[in-house]
Write a protein that binds this DNA or RNA. Structure first.
Lengths: 246, 246
DNA sequence: GTCTATAGCATGATAGAC
DNA sequence: GTCTATCATGCTATAGAC
């Protein structure tokens, strides 16, 4: 795991404390640490090796890519658009991105690695099924929220990626579903959950509801639903399906 | 409502009989009736007025557009790709589509009108909340299945449509959610349902699960879940949330 | 490290023969 | 009604000055 992402001193404060502030303190998914991560993943494709200036321009390039691609689509965003938006010349852009499709690939790669880092750390904690379920749902939803532009891009532009990356994305989602199913199964075995339907479908439905948070922002905005309320809704709905009795 | 879509003689056989065969017989959403619908919606933009040849080529054009756009994205599908795939020359294509974006707009328009026709007809039946819920979920899922390429296209290419059409798509989804909420509310009032959470979130979650059927075909294929099983899962999961007792 | 200028090519669209 | 040939434009990417 990339140490830059996780403050060791905070490791034990989360997921036991499931507030979003605690999550943000424990995981450095925003601001400069994020761009250092992007640089770490992407720097082989870059001509610029000076970290200081690279970070500033990487941030501009990725941020503007999200603004353009998430509103009109990545393929219909031209590099001239991106050049205008970032105020970096065409030639300048190519010192950072290698090619247009490299840019999309980098976004997907950063998302994959971040998810892996955060979720694999969750398994280190020794929690009971209820706590594991809660921690997984809150962690995933917080990630969806903080990196919502990244997730939105990956979901809607997946077709544009090469076959290996598309396959990776599908495998990531399968693993997430399986992680949920494992928790369900363990809870059923230990007797805290009871469910007589298809666990894969229950997991798939949960994943779908979590993804809504970045896919349907307009809906939650219109409803006035905040992230805490939505997390609680998903969890209580799921616990109800699982016949969990506190 | 467009009479060509609905066989009057079958009006009463559905939604009381919720099998997919009955749905397909009642609603003509496939084959020649579908392409006649497309022609009806799109013919103003076409130079060809002869129905016979137009229908055959429209089918080729739309079918190939789905194959290309749903695998690589509509914007990165060139009209030369489409020309090669349909075996219609570039000049020939323009006798049918007006422009590339007209083609996307036509797909969205056909979907919108079909949904409106099918769902508005459902309200004509006088059903109790349980039956209405079942009919709505089955009808929507069957539509998602039969027209899955159309829905998939609309979901993933929505960004490429003009503002009015994007707004229309959002309004359609809001109306669907509200339709679900109305049924929930009526059931709660008449005492067959009991729910103390947020109805809009329960409706949004149901809509999300229905959309999975065309968004995540790879998942259901891998799980071996067929449409009947999935319809039953969504309904029973929802009835459980609503504390419905048969 | 950033820029301007431009190469080289693919694209959407149209004109006009048949 | 369908085709071929072509136009004008916009695109990604690079070369080379500073």
């Amino acid at each position: 795991m990339n140490n830059a992402v996780k403050l060791e001193t905070e490791q034990l404060s989360w997921p036991h404390n499931t507030g979003m502030d605690a999550f943000k303190r424990a995981w450095l998914l925003e601001g400069e640490p994020l761009w250092e991560r992007v640089f770490a993943v992407h720097h082989e494709r870059m001509q610029i090796k000076n970290g200081k200036t690279a970070l500033k321009n990487l941030q501009k390039i990725f941020t503007c890519t999200f603004r353009l691609a998430n509103s009109q689509g990545f393929h219909s965003m031209s590099l001239r658009d991106l050049s205008r938006e970032t105020e970096i010349s065409m030639g300048g852009l190519y010192a950072y991105i290698g090619s247009k499709s490299d840019l999309a690939a980098a976004i997907a790669a950063v998302v994959r690695q971040t998810i892996d880092d955060v979720l694999s750390d969750l398994t280190l904690h020794n929690l009971d099924p209820y706590e594991r379920l809660k921690a997984l749902i809150y962690a995933d939803l917080y990630m969806n929220d903080i990196l919502h532009q990244w997730y939105y891009f990956c979901f809607l532009e997946a077709k544009g990626l090469d076959k290996a990356q598309r396959e990776e994305a599908i495998q990531m989602e399968f693993r997430f579903d399986l992680r949920l199913q494992d928790i369900f199964s363990e809870g059923i075995q230990t007797g805290v959950f009871r469910y007589d339907g298809e666990l894969p479908l229950l997991a798939a439905g949960t994943t779908a509801m979590l993804q809504q948070w970045y896919l349907k922002r307009w809906k939650f905005q219109q409803l006035g639903t905040n992230i805490q309320q939505y997390a609680e809704y998903i969890l209580s709905n799921l616990l109800n399906s699982l016949n969990y009795k506190k």
